[in-house]
Design a protein around this nucleic acid. Structure first.
Lengths: 205, 205
DNA sequence: CCAAAATGTGAGCAATGGCTCATGTTCAAC
DNA sequence: GTTGAACATGAGCCATTGCTCACATTTTGG
C-alpha cells in the first residue's frame, strides 16, 4: 500500500574522512561523465567505475541514480546563488545600470565557468521531480536581485527580478552554447536589453 | 569496419493511405506520451501500443526510436519557422516597433500552442545528434528575421536576429512554463527589452 | 482472380542497467 | 586486543527495452 517514492536526498551522511572522499568522487565522476558523454552515459556502474569505488558504495550514500543528479543540481544552484549574491553585494549604493552590468557579467561568468556541466544539469532538472532545496536557492537568488531593484525604485521588483534573470540567461546561454567566445561583446549586447526592460518601468534616476 | 551509424531519417516512405495513417499515429502517440509522461516513458513498445500498431510496423518506417524524435523536432521547427514567416510577411512596411511586437506575440503564441510538447522536444534536441534539416529551418527563420531588421537599418542584422530570438524565447519560455497565463502582460514586458536591445544599435527612425 | 508488393503482427532475443546482498575490510573507542 | 560500527566490494538478480524476424493480411496492377 504505502509504497513511498524513493527520496532524492542522500541516504546516509558520511562520518569518516574516507567516506567523504567517496561521496566526492562519486559526484565528480557523475559530473564528468555527464559533461563528456551526455546524460544517457551516466549509469550507476559507469559512475562507480570512474569514481574508483564499487556500486555498493554508491548506493550507501545515494538511494538512487536520480539522487546523484539532484545533489549536483543543488550544488550548481548554490554556486549560482552565491555568485549573484556577491555581485549584488558589490553594487550596493551604485547606479542601477552599473548594478545590472555587473549582474550580466556575473551570469555570463557563471555559465562560462561551468559551461557543459550547467547545460546538461539544467536539462536534467526539467525531467526530475522538483527539489525543494533547489527551488529555495533559486527563490533566494531572485529575492536578492529584487531587493537591489527595490532600492532603485523599480516597480514590481519580484516580477522584474524574474524577468531580468530569464532575459540574461536566455540570451547568454544559447550564445555561449553556440561557441561565442567574445564575452565582452555578448555582455554589451545584453546590457541595453536589460536597461530597455527596466526603462519601461522606471524613469532613469 | 564501416559500421555506419543508424540514420535519423525515416526508413521508408509510406505509399498507401493506410500506412500514412500508421506513421501519423506513431508520431502522435510518441508526442502524447512525451507530453504527459516525459521522455523516459517514450519506449518503442509504449508508442506502438498507444498508436494501436505493432512494434514491427513502427520499425518499418522509423529505423530507431531517435528517428521518431528527430521527425517530431523537424515538425516543430517547421511550424515555428512558418509562424515567424507569416508574422514577418505581415509587418512588411510597418515600423520596427510594430514588427517586433508582432514577432514577440508570434513566439509567445507558438509556445502557448504547443507548450509541453515544444518544451520536451527542445530538451531532447540537445541530447540528439544535430539534424541538418532542423538546423536549416532555424537558419531560415533567423534569415527571415534578419531581412526584416535590414530593412530597418539595424546594423549586424544576423547577429541581432539571433539575439532577439534568444531574448524573446528566453523570457517567454520560462514564464509560460511557470504557469504564466496573462500573455498580454508577458508580451508587454518583452517588448521594451527587445526595443532596448535594438535601441543601442539604431536611432529610432 | 492472382501474383507480387506493401503493410501489419507480436513473441521473444540480446543487451542493458538499476539495484541488492552476502561477505570482507578499516576505523574508533575503550 | 577486542569489539562493534562504519565503510567497501562486486557478482549477479530482475526488470526493462530496443529491435528482429518469421509469418499473416491487405492492397494493387494486370
Amino acid at each position: 500500500m504505502a509504497n513511498a517514492p524513493p527520496p532524492l536526498s542522500p541516504r546516509k551522511t558520511p562520518r569518516q574522512a574516507r567516506s567523504k572522499a567517496t561521496v566526492h568522487a562519486i559526484l565528480e565522476a557523475a559530473a564528468r561523465i555527464l559533461e563528456t558523454q551526455g546524460a544517457d552515459a551516466v549509469t550507476t556502474n559507469a559512475v562507480a567505475d570512474r569514481a574508483g569505488v564499487s556500486v555498493g558504495s554508491l548506493y550507501q550514500y545515494f538511494p538512487s541514480k536520480e539522487a546523484i543528479f539532484a545533489e549536483l543540481i543543488r550544488q550548481m544552484r548554490a554556486q549560482m546563488r552565491d555568485d549573484i549574491f556577491r555581485a549584488m553585494d558589490f553594487v550596493v549604493g551604485k547606479s542601477l545600470s552599473f548594478a545590472m552590468a555587473r549582474l550580466v557579467r556575473a551570469v555570463i561568468h557563471h555559465h562560462v565557468h561551468r559551461a557543459h556541466r550547467a547545460d546538461a544539469l539544467e536539462h536534467l532538472e526539467a525531467q526530475l521531480p522538483p527539489d525543494p532545496d533547489s527551488l529555495a536557492m533559486m527563490s533566494q537568488t531572485r529575492a536578492r536581485l529584487a531587493l537591489c531593484l527595490t532600492q532603485h525604485d523599480v516597480p514590481q521588483p519580484e516580477q522584474a527580478a524574474e524577468d531580468v534573470l530569464n532575459l540574461i540567461i536566455g540570451m547568454a546561454h544559447p550564445a555561449l552554447h553556440d561557441g561565442e567566445t567574445d564575452f565582452d561583446s555578448l555582455a554589451r549586447r545584453i546590457d541595453p536589453a536589460v536597461l530597455g526592460y527596466l526603462g519601461a518601468n522606471v524613469t532613469v534616476s
